[in-house]
Design a protein around this nucleic acid. Structure first.
Lengths: 163, 163
DNA sequence: TTATTCGTTCAGTCGAAATTGAACGATCTG
DNA sequence: CAGATCGTTCAATTTCGACTGAACGAATAA
């Protein structure tokens, strides 16, 4: 049994859940993080499940996700063998790990993909599958993408520092 | 009847679709844009539907979305009363409008929400619903979010220029 | 006028992902 | 040792939203 959550925290949890949902992440992940972010003391897994009225299974998977992103950390509470969690105060660590674990691989992949596409385009030009005009047009557009994406790959790490 | 698409364009369409999907946008939107981006000449709505093998309904909603974002534009082809579409070559226009039409409102909303939450927290403190410790802790975390989000709102427009 | 063509809208379907409840292994307790 | 507690896993379910087909109004053509 624990004191009910203040409206401030309830609404924050709601917002965090919605934010996650609109970004394509499970709502429960946002709720767990929202709860922990405004929690002065660490919470155990069943506390989280109770307070959010969601299943322990969701909390289990959610916390694992958040731990992997370093958005929360697992802390040990003497005299209790349950797992406690607390939110990481500084969000930069989280953003860094989310970037390097999620965005960075995607960018690398798309970068390679663009190169492959340009090569394909050339070979298709040689085989006469695409005409000269179409080839020139596509090449220009694809190289434009390569330029943009090159700049982005330089800018994003910088952004992470400025934030 | 129209010439089949070269493998370059097919694969590009696939990539564009996947990218949209991972960002939480409909795959069809990405496909439409991908097709148009590598299209030397404008395409009509049924052309798009045929080449992508998706329904006209999807294309209709997709193009409307993309037009709103200024990612594509509607062009008029003399002698044909159908709507033709072409991709906007320079992506900066698109990013600007996507930012001001999608991200910016969200940011403004969340900013307001944070202020409201801070006010709620104060009143709940006055009513004794939250103790002093909890109040201080939550206030610190919330103001931290306000700081970050303030910096973000300044940085994003800058990023749009640098890209 | 009637018959087509074009694009949009809307209710219904479908699939993918989130969430759940139950079962399980592991670890502590009495 | 038996009993209880804790966290994870997995199959089943629910939920959510993209996608579709059909119906519709508007605009053109015959």
């Amino acid at each position: 049994m624990s004191a009910p959550l203040a409206r401030t925290r309830l609404e924050f949890i709601e917002v965090a859940g919605r934010v996650c949902q609109t970004v394509g992440l499970p709502r429960s992940v946002g709720q767990v993080y929202g709860l922990l972010y405004l929690s002065p003391s660490p919470l155990a897994l069943d506390d989280i499940a109770d307070r959010l009225s969601i299943s322990k299974a969701s909390v289990s998977t959610g916390t694992r996700q958040l731990v992997a992103w370093q958005a929360i950390r697992q802390v040990w509470v003497p005299g209790d063998r349950r797992d406690y969690f607390e939110a990481v105060g500084d969000l930069r660590e989280m953003m860094r790990s989310v970037y390097s674990g999620f965005f960075s691989p995607k960018y690398a992949k798309s970068e390679r993909k663009l190169e492959v596409l340009l090569a394909t385009l050339e070979s298709e030009r040689k085989e006469g599958i695409v005409g000269r005009d179409e080839h020139d047009f596509c090449k220009e557009r694809l190289t434009h993408l390569v330029r943009i994406q090159g700049r982005a790959s330089k800018l994003l790490p910088l952004l992470e520092k400025l934030l």
